[in-house]
Design a protein around this nucleic acid. Structure first.
Length: 532
RNA sequence: GCCCCCUUAGCUCAACGGAUAGAGCGCUGGCCUCCGGAGCCAAAGAUGGAAGUUCAAUUCUUCCAGGGGGCACCA
């Protein structure tokens, strides 16, 4: 039982069903925009007015008694305002009850019992260069989405798809080889046509000449690149459950298998010496090439096989995180899934928008001008880096202000939140040993205390939003809101006061705040500080 | 040429068709005898333009202006 924000939507839904026989679409309510409008507001009466064919005020009036009856004890009062808003005010008793539940159940109070088996594939950068600032966002967002699902109760696996074969890999090998030759002859390295520039190519060549001269160039270079990627991932505090090799997929014949599978359904044909997949039959704009006229398989072909493989591994849900340049690719992959006879809904693709640098430096791997992720982590640290990446919605452009990031960490909003942790710890240090005792909780009555509590009990609301939309930013929003409520409380009310009952009540409040805060930060993979 | 996204305060971003468009940074002015002032309070400041749909438009539709991205037998 997660308190009011878990209960209210169900009660409202039942009300509409029982009174009007209507099943309404989800956004039936929202957090109230202003204090005078209570804790949450519903606009169902306005929304359903035309469907029910009644005046919104009338509908609201009809709903009110039902809500009052079923929210007894939870809500203190229900207001109906102007055009037809229904505003619900939380009762103090229900707030205190939630607080005490947090004290006894700890973060389990907020957990759920999901039941899906989910595979989330993210980052999956080509191992042909160091990870960039843009990759960092994919990595962190993917990891946090996985955390959110896990917290919700789903069984989650994190996978990195390693593109270790194909055209880009060939180019990578040629690039390193050329750099090695250049070093041998003492001349300057010039990248091959379409190949990789950047100093790291020369560095790999250098190391190869010193340590790897007896091994295969590509093997050596790839393992160098992959371990550098793994290092960055580790420094971000991310752990993948599996690293899925594309090369392995090809060698096992899975790609040919997938093509045969489609072929048997009559969805593959030959034209201009190439193999085509009849994508138009399933709603795509045009047919797609599976095997080029030179006999090489396209990336799309192995992607079909890869997704087929994922589904066969028995997941209820596949989540892919892609860059914005893959936007048009969603339809293509879903089309292929449909063609193979799978539900296209099993795959959910999350597009993570670009990251740009304020300094106007172009971020292109091939040009070699990109700022590396490892550099960024080194400068900002794991927690700040993670936090910064999560401050925008997935599909919003994130502007990374390098100058700000470099000069000082004071301006970072993370410190606003960490400061709450530091202040709480400081108070607990001064308070000495204290076992929270729920009996004192109902002594809380000051406006700032209640407001802090009001913020705290909204966690399930934000969690659900984050879970349903796969948007970690809602957790950040919650933390900011909660922190603000705490700082206001701190300015106005002392915790360590003469009256020991009041002190105990406030320590209870801080204890539950600490639990909630640590829980939310834990989902973001950020460690709460004890002092700063 | 076709398709997609974006345009909100000086800057970076919110607002799932709803009530007085919210934050942070910056600017201006207050607040330390007191649990950490990395904080709190107050003030100034915005929907690119023109129509339309609606009880209600930053949100939906159309047009215009400006910015970004995608349109391959690339990945």
């Amino acid at each position: 039982m997660k308190g009011f924000y878990d209960k209210f939507p169900r009660v409202l839904k039942n009300a509409l069903e029982n009174i009007y026989g209507i099943i309404a679409e989800p956004p039936l309510w929202e957090l109230s925009s202003r204090r005078e409008f209570g804790d949450l507001s519903s606009m169902v009466a306005l929304k359903l007015a035309s469907r029910i064919k009644k005046n919104p005020m009338e509908i609201a009036a009809e709903l009110k008694p039902y809500l009052e009856k079923n929210l007894k004890g939870f809500s203190e009062k229900i207001d109906i305002l102007k055009p037809g808003f229904i505003n619900v005010f939380l009762s103090k008793d229900s707030l205190i009850e939630s607080l005490n539940s947090v004290l006894t159940e700890k973060d389990c109070f907020f957990k759920n019992k999901g039941k899906r088996k989910v595979l989330i594939e993210f980052l999956s950068a080509n191992p042909t260069g160091p990870l960039t600032v843009a990759h960092g966002r994919q990595a962190v967002v993917g990891d946090v989405i996985a955390n959110i699902l896990e917290f919700w109760g789903d069984e989650v696996e994190r996978e990195y798809y390693l593109n270790d074969t194909g055209r880009q890999i060939d180019l990578f090998r040629e690039s390193v080889k050329k750099a090695v030759d250049a070093k041998d002859r003492g001349s300057e390295y010039v990248a091959p046509e379409g190949g990789y520039r950047g100093d790291y190519i020369k560095e790999i060549a250098h190391r190869y000449l010193h340590n790897g001269i007896n091994s295969d160039i590509l093997e050596y270079s790839l393992s160098e690149m992959i371990s550098s990627i793994k290092e960055d991932v580790k420094n971000l505090g991310i752990k993948f459950d599996s690293w899925f090799s594309q090369n392995n997929l090809v060698e096992k014949g899975k790609v040919e298998e997938a093509i045969d599978f489609l072929s048997e359904k009559g969805l593959i044909y030959e034209k201009d010496e190439a193999l085509w997949f009849s994508a138009t039959a399933f709603g795509d704009d045009k047919d797609r090439v599976i095997k080029k006229s030179d006999g090489e398989l396209t990336y799309f072909a192995s992607d079909i096989a890869y997704h087929k493989d994922k589904i066969e591994r028995g997941y209820d849900k596949l989540i892919d995180l892609w860059g914005p340049d893959h936007h048009g690719y969603i339809k293509r992959v879903k089309t292929a899934l449909k063609a193979m006879g799978y539900e296209e809904e099993i795959l959910e693709v999350v597009i993570i928008q670009l990251v740009s640098l304020k300094s106007k430096e172009r971020m292109s791997k091939r040009a070699g001008t990109a700022i590396s992720l490892s550099q960024l982590i080194k400068e900002l640290g794991k927690d700040t880096t993670r936090f910064y990446y999560l401050t925008r919605k997935n599909d919003s452009h994130l502007e990374f202000d390098m100058d700000l990031a470099r000069q000082a960490t004071f301006n970072n909003p993370l410190y606003y939140i960490q400061y709450v942790c530091a202040r709480i710890e400081s108070i607990f240090r001064k308070a000495g040993k204290y076992e929270s005792d729920p009996r004192y909780s109902n002594l809380l009555s000051e406006e700032e205390e209640i407001n802090l509590l009001r913020s705290l009990v909204r966690f399930p609301y934000y969690l659900e939003k984050a879970y349903c939309s796969l948007e970690p930013v809602f957790i950040i929003e919650f933390l900011k809101d909660l922190s603000s409520a705490f700082h206001k409380f701190y300015e106005c009310q002392r915790v360590l006061v003469e009256d020991s009952s009041v002190m105990k009540a406030r320590l209870n409040l801080l204890k539950s705040l600490k639990i909630t805060l640590h829980c939310a930060l834990g989902i973001l993979g950020i460690r709460p500080v004890e002092e700063m």
